[in-house]
């Protein structure tokens, strides 16, 4: 019979989760199993390792564990991904945020930073940038290095221009970046109010109070119990009348917190905290 991949079972996956927990105190037990297993298998194929080889390397090869964790996270993002979501930020969220004297925004699970720069641009267009500060966090330090540089392939940024135009923003995306060779560089003006830092949603706690938190396409990788825990972290981090924005397939249904949140948009999952 044709064997396609070095298949590992869910039991094998549990052993890997336990090993990583015991040796490195990294808790992957709340991750959605099917998705996590797929990424572990992909990693094993890439590294040409079987289960024993993977475990051996995780325990004994210096630096291998952090490489493993970096490769396990999903780092797919775009500028102005879901233009209608950004349109709603323009019409429903930004005008409200304008009423706060100071703005702190948190993009949790920001990957290579495209969404953080998108927020930076929107804040500029609403004249809010100078009183804002944006934190971009991710579990993966390697993607944050890319985020800090703010240099993206020009071909991709041209695709993002299309998103930008559809999101009802005022200018052209090319007004914001400098094109050099095949790259588009985010200018320093867009970077000065941004701080990129590692943060693990599973194990790290509240680090500031925010008027806006976005966490898009991250919670889908977590099981319901872990989702709940992360929602509690967001709730504790969010100021009264602050906004929480999720991915277009993520909702607060399982959060147990909907009695405190007003649904601003059901399709794009934008919520406002209206009670403490």
């Amino acid at each position: 019979m044709v064997k396609l991949v070095p298949l590992i079972t869910y039991e094998d996956l549990s052993e890997i989760i336990l090993l990583v927990k015991n040796v490195y105190d990294m808790d992957l037990s709340g991750y959605s199993k099917a998705s996590l297993k797929r990424r572990v298998i992909r990693f094993m194929e890439l590294e040409k390792l079987d289960l024993l080889g993977l475990k051996t390397a995780l325990i004994n090869t210096k630096g291998f564990y952090s490489h493993f964790i970096m490769e396990l996270t999903v780092n797919v993002t775009e500028m102005f991904r879901d233009p209608q979501y950004y349109q709603l930020l323009n019409t429903e969220v930004m005008p409200y945020l304008a009423s706060f004297p100071r703005l702190r925004l948190w993009s949790a699970g920001c990957s290579t930073g495209e969404e953080v720069y998108s927020l930076s641009i929107i804040l500029q267009e609403h004249g809010l940038y100078q009183r804002s500060f944006i934190y971009g966090t991710d579990i993966n330090a390697r993607v944050l290095d890319t985020a800090k540089k703010g240099i993206y392939s020009l071909a991709k940024v041209k695709e993002y221009s299309d998103n930008y135009l559809k999101s009802g923003c005022k200018n052209s995306l090319s007004d914001y970046y400098t094109a050099m060779y095949e790259a588009a560089c985010m200018p320093n003006e867009l970077k000065e109010k941004i701080l990129f830092s590692t943060h693990n949603l599973v194990s790290d706690g509240v680090f500031n109070e925010f008027q806006f938190i976005s966490c898009r396409n991250v919670l889908i990788y977590f099981e319901i119990d872990l989702q709940k825990k992360v929602f509690e972290l967001f709730d504790k981090s969010l100021a009264l009348f602050g906004f929480l924005c999720l991915g277009s397939k993520e909702s607060m249904i399982h959060s147990g917190l909907l009695h405190k949140y007003k649904v601003i948009d059901k399709k794009y999952n934008i919520y406002q905290k209206i009670a403490l």
């Binding site: 959605s32 998705s35 797929r38 999903v74 889908i220 397939k249």
Partner: peptide, 19 residues
């Protein structure tokens, strides 16, 4: 859903993935 991978978990629930 368009734009997402659809996975079936061992506990017979769906999960989505944007890898």
């Amino acid at each position: 859903p368009a734009g997402y991978h659809l996975l079936i978990e061992p506990d017979f629930t769906f999960s989505l993935d944007i890898s």
